[in-house]
Design a protein around this nucleic acid. Structure first.
Lengths: 229, 229
DNA sequence: GGAACAATCTGAACGCGTTCAACCCCACTG
DNA sequence: CAGTGGGGTTGAACGCGTTCAGATTGTTCC
């Protein structure tokens, strides 16, 4: 009953993602995934290196959903802060069913050995997807920024996204209401910071931040909270 | 062979920490910890809820080391950026032997169910220790800031510390040299940002950031003095 | 002393993620 | 028509973190 590798792989991924959604991470065992997919457990490991790789699959699909949900809600020519707010809220929307996976997502995102770390310069599908969404967000917005900042802005917004996600993971309020509040408060701050960065008095600081960002380029600094710039 | 609970607990913790240091997280099994401490595995679980709690113990001790290493190196009256740099470098120094634990530290720090989350308002020994160190850092520095910012500055520096730690976890360069570079670049930026925050043009942004910060920490440890330990 | 009770301790057992040697199946050779 | 090679597949086995019913020890009160 040998299918093609691609078929079995997809079958396993679909089954795993369904069980993840229905029962969460811990309750979904590799044995159940294999059984419900109708294959042996050994075969599951032939197609996926481990349980984490199945969560990676989930994470990438969630990011695709994020993009699909956010893109049509962007308003061309709006301030970048407004569009960022839209994107971040869309992110919370699509991630909501997977709040229990926060820790696992984080672990996968931070894994230094894996080539899928968002900080790794190598192939990082998750990082690339998220970065790309921020690039689109900046491009479609009307906010004018300096050329130097413009090139780095998607990156900075991605770090902001990362910070918000970090907060979301730890947010136990109902429907992650506090993270919503954070987004609504944070976006205007980001907008103001971007505006301020154009003033001569802040120019030195802006350059410093950008230089710092560049110096870390293969591996990125971290979602800090917002430094007033 | 019944010792006091405190004795057995300490014996287990010491053994665990030694093995963690010698062999890392994965190679140190609960069975080995129990065996080398001369107790049964069930007894180990009587004193510690699980392996994570032993790592917590390690983390708290590392933070104590951090404070002990940083405090004598602080220079009274120096710019806060300089002292922050000292503290962050001291942090990398003491954490160096435990770089392999980065992911585990992170997982423990982020655990929402546990009361040890850095964002949790409840008892969080790790968070409190780290915050306290930043409070000392600010107090001993000579930088003058507005009253409103002064109260929140330890918190902001703690977030900076968190960000640096997050970068450190993912930093695979030898001796985490890149994180050192990040610290050296980041601290002047923080110093400049603090200076800039006093200017009228940035006052609105500063207030916004502080308000945002307050909204995220409903339970502020306002009156917390140093607890004897 | 001894009965009663809680604290401390034991180790077999459970289900988990993961590994691996062997098995099946089929397209392709000679 | 054997033979051969390799991808797809199998499930028993391993060691792990963790649990729990019960044994052991220490303390308290009569």
């Amino acid at each position: 009953m040998a299918r093609t590798a691609a078929e079995t792989r997809e079958l396993l991924a679909d089954t795993a993602l369904r069980l993840f959604r229905e029962d969460g991470f811990d309750a979904t065992t590799m044995r159940r995934i294999a059984t419900e997919a109708g294959v042996s457990i050994g075969n599951a490991y032939h197609h996926f290196a481990g349980k984490d790789e199945l969560v990676q699959e989930l994470y990438v699909r969630v990011l695709d959903e994020h993009r699909a949900a956010a893109a049509p809600r962007l308003v061309d020519g709006s301030p970048v802060a407004d569009n960022l707010r839209t994107v971040l809220h869309a992110g919370i929307d699509v991630m909501a069913p997977y709040h229990g996976f926060g820790q696992t997502f984080l672990r996968i995102a931070v894994q230094p050995t894996s080539s899928t770390s968002p900080f790794s310069g190598e192939s990082a599908p998750a990082r690339d997807r998220a970065l790309d969404l921020m690039r689109v967000t900046v491009d479609r917005s009307g906010t004018k920024v300096s050329r130097a900042l413009d090139a780095r802005l998607p990156h900075l917004l991605w770090l902001t996204h990362l910070a918000v996600t970090l907060h979301w993971v730890t947010d136990t309020t109902t429907d992650q209401q506090r993270t919503r509040t954070l987004i609504d408060g944070l976006c205007p701050v980001v907008g103001r910071a971007i505006a301020l960065s154009r003033l001569p008095v802040a120019r030195g600081l802006t350059d410093q931040v950008l230089t710092l960002l560049d110096s870390l380029t293969p591996e990125e600094p971290v979602a800090s909270e917002e430094t007033p710039s």
